[in-house]
Amino acid sequence: MTACAIEPSADPGSDDPPRAGCSIAAEGAYAARLARSGDSWYPERWTLDGPEPYAVPLPGNQPEEPGTEVQPMGDGRVLVHRTAAGRHLFSLLYPTGPCTGELPLGAIECPADTTRLRLLPPAPGGERAYALAVGPRSTVLWQVAGGAFGPERVAEVPGRCSGGAWLDRTGRILAVDRETGGRTKAVVVDLERDGEVSPLLQIAADSDDRILLADPDSGLVLIRSDAPSPGRGRLGWGVLGSTLPVRFPECLRLTDCVVTPFAIQPGQALTPERCAVALRVDGAFGSWVGVWRPAEREVRHLPAPEGWLAGAGLWTADGELRLPCATPQSPCAVARLAAPDTGGGRAGDAEDSAPHETDGPAASDGPGEPDGPDTSAAPAPAPPRPVPLQQAPLARRVTK
């Protein structure tokens, strides 16, 4: 049986980043992907928390379509999202000796004007899974696994939503990018308050501000916004609950390349600026790996290991980057890369930053403050003030 690496791209017409070659559970014990044997596709589960990674094929009664979504659950089962005759079907697959067991979870019949339905990133805990069904004026959040009676409608969010990042370790606080009125802003959906929606990120009134990745331990978030360069999105970073502005490092501007963060080093609760961030870099000659820390002024570029399932990987707390790979010779392997030592640069050096609201706490001379003039003290007339990241409702919501 021949396995090959898959490098899917983003869905046509979607604002979501390129899809990874496989999906990794939030706790990192399992991964799942579509593998191929000849012209046939089948789900495959990888176990990553043992001495050596190993794969278990989970073929069904018939081959899967190339667009079938798969996602690992915390107990080792694999969630499968299929489409047939306009219906979205969900099942859990698991090995049963030489065969594949399948537990149907039910189906979602979306209105004809629904443009797409896709799985959200794996939820913390691994017991539940969610999907977004995007319509022309609103988006429905569904719980498709872990409920008592099949797929359950959780909330309806006004606007067209994309992206998706979990902001806590309990699977309660979800950030999505919502498009309304021609602008896209990251918002928070509180799953324990009937899907209540609150603003999360607004760099400027007329900017598109998306959240790409978040680490619940440190509060570090990676965003993309066109506030510093209208019409062209730039990568930036901030810390949930911080009084410092969002930064846009120059080193993350790579000409003719698409840069997508895909993993943040966990366990750095008190030093978010020291978290290592793994970047997928797509250029004219393929994809490779970048490693960057907010405290540094450079991206370390590393060649992608052979067979890397592009965009997939995880950090360990002690700074080891693990990248799943598949080649005909090694159909299930994990490349292990140590994070380069930090150069000791200050967070924010040679960066652009978005100024604070005047009613927020002062941020002068704080750690990580960028060099240069204080843009928040610019004389009138001034451009529209941004809403700083510390106004996100995460801190007070989680403590309730």
Rank of each mutant, 00 (worst) to 15 (best):
L79P: 02
L117N: 00
R82T: 03
T115A: 14
R116K: 09
H81R: 14
L79T: 01
P72G: 10
P98K: 14
R116Y: 08
P72C: 06
G106N: 11
E127Q: 15
M73Y: 02
A112F: 07
L119Y: 03
G125S: 11
R87V: 12
R82P: 00
V78R: 04
D113T: 14
G126A: 12
P111W: 03
Q71F: 03
L117R: 05
H88S: 13
R128E: 15
P104M: 12
L79Y: 04
E69A: 14
G86F: 02
G76M: 06
L119R: 00
G97M: 06
L79F: 04
A123C: 14
G74F: 06
A123F: 01
G97Y: 10
S91D: 15
H88L: 02
L105G: 06
D75I: 11
L79G: 05
G97V: 08
V78Q: 02
G86K: 08
H88M: 04
V80M: 11
G101Q: 08
R128I: 00
A107R: 13
G101A: 07
L105D: 06
A84L: 15
V78G: 02
E109L: 08
T83V: 14
Y94E: 09
A84G: 03
P111L: 04
T96E: 15
P122F: 10
G76E: 02
C99R: 13
P95N: 02
E127H: 15
P98R: 15
L79E: 05
E127W: 13
L93N: 03
R77F: 05
R82Y: 01
V78I: 07
P98G: 12
T83P: 00
R77P: 00
R116T: 10
L119N: 03
R87S: 14
A85F: 14
L92G: 03
D75S: 13
A107D: 13
L117Y: 01
P124Q: 07
T96L: 15
L119E: 03
F90W: 07
L103A: 12
E102H: 07
P104C: 08
A107P: 00
M73Q: 08
G86M: 07
M73N: 04
L117D: 01
G74V: 08
V78L: 09
T83A: 14
G101P: 01
R77K: 11
R118H: 11
R118V: 06
L120M: 05
P121F: 09
L92C: 03
E102G: 04
R128N: 12
Y94C: 01
V78E: 01
D113H: 13
T96M: 15
G76D: 02
T114M: 11
E69S: 13
G97H: 07
G101C: 04
G125P: 01
S91C: 09
E102S: 15
P95Y: 05
Y130S: 05
P111Y: 02
R82Q: 08
C110G: 00
L117S: 00
G126V: 08
P111E: 10
A84S: 15
T83M: 13
